[in-house]
Design a protein around this nucleic acid. Structure first.
Lengths: 222, 222
DNA sequence: CTCTGTGAATGTGTTCACAGCG
DNA sequence: CGCTGTGAACACATTCACAGAG
């Protein structure tokens, strides 16, 4: 971790930029011209000081006494996130989760385009999902269909081998929904989303609340 | 943020405990008795010093010169995460994503049980998913079917109203896959997983790599 | 007088490096 | 010896508070 991110945008800030961008897009659709850090903070679930500091990292110009120009800021953030080019995405694993993601319109509207879907089940290969033919990953021609982002929605056991194949295809960004750690060469970026992990974190907090309440009732705490 | 977590377990540590637990479960299945911080770190994608510090927060006893007792540590972590009790989960939104989660066996094996599935589409209500009847959220009787964790897989526009209904049902932990910020009363915990956000973060890093390479080639950097 | 931009202060998380137990 | 547990050092992130632009 602790990547330098070239022109010094902190990773924590990067993690919030998509949220700001979403809020700004909504505002733009409503025809709003400018927005204050306070308002943007409320929309994105952050504090105003944080918004200002985050935006200051991209050297963005707000106007003192007024706020930020909505469309200008949209462009700034999009540029910073690299959303001007649009990224070809492949989804591997055509179970319910893979199909859900293939159909998700939040992708197209945010600079991503699903260009291929793959599975290894012979009964599924050859059918179409969202108008795209399901192929075997082995059969994909990286020259005919270049991909730069891979999404893995297969069961956990297959994840590492799928990952290796994606890397061989030239994918440098991988999003996996399979539990477990993926090993990748230098220069390949992996993000993992795991339902189990998320729920366990929620369970922890709820568990703590229950313990705290029990303690309060038995009068253990001051 | 910056919750105190009662007996001082840092939030960052909590976020890694599920990963350790998964690794330990695998080890236990392989019949392994003990494990070193180095090995556990490798399996969970962390550094050994981090593992040791994290585990020290739960006051766990390792054995110097040997390592940690696998089954003992599993219990410690499970207890800390509150996985001894098992949490009743409701999934709202029976699209592909909701169905995928309802079918996901990673839940049952980790202390969660899906006790109800809901949707608002009259064509879907009354059908069964994974052996459970799909109900309307309004029709759910919280006394007959208590739920403590809610998972929202509806489109974004419905997310806030679903969220409000879940809170009214007594749910204190919510996991949402809808983009956007959910407003909840004090004491309710929300975690959001958004595909778009994750992909945008990946795009940022890949974009940076490309910029860095371009810079290197034009010889701008020292 | 409002709202940005930012140094300075504070808080949190990670890594180092080593004392000390088995 | 090997490996844990942990203070101390460092790195990173958030929040405060205010100077200064419009």
């Amino acid at each position: 971790m602790a990547e330098s991110t070239r022109r010094g945008v902190p990773v924590a800030t990067v993690g919030r930029l998509p949220g700001y961008l979403r809020a700004l897009t909504t505002l733009a659709e409503q025809g709003r011209r400018s927005v204050s850090s306070d308002e943007l903070a409320a929309l994105a679930g952050a504090r105003s000081a944080q918004v200002r500091k985050d935006l200051s990292h991209l050297g963005s110009y707000g106007v003192r006494g007024v706020g930020y120009d909505v469309s200008r800021l949209c462009e700034q953030i999009s540029a910073e996130l690299g959303l001007s080019e649009d990224w070809p995405v492949i989804i591997v694993g055509m179970g319910n989760l893979g199909r859900a993601l293939a159909a998700y319109d939040g992708l197209a509207t945010r600079g991503f385009r699903v260009v291929a879907v793959a599975d290894r089940d012979p009964d599924v290969v050859g059918t179409t999902v969202e108008g795209m033919p399901v192929v075997r990953l082995e059969d994909l021609d990286p020259l005919a269909t270049p991909v730069s982002v891979g999404v893995i929605t297969t069961p956990g056991e297959q994840a590492q081998s799928v990952c290796d194949q994606l890397v061989a295809l030239g994918v440098h960004s991988i999003l996996t929904f399979a539990p477990g750690v993926l090993t990748v060469p230098e220069g390949v970026d992996v993000r993992a989303v795991d339902l189990g992990t998320e729920l366990q974190i929620l369970a922890f907090h709820q568990h703590q609340r229950l313990l705290a309440r029990a303690e309060a009732e038995t009068g253990v705490v001051s």
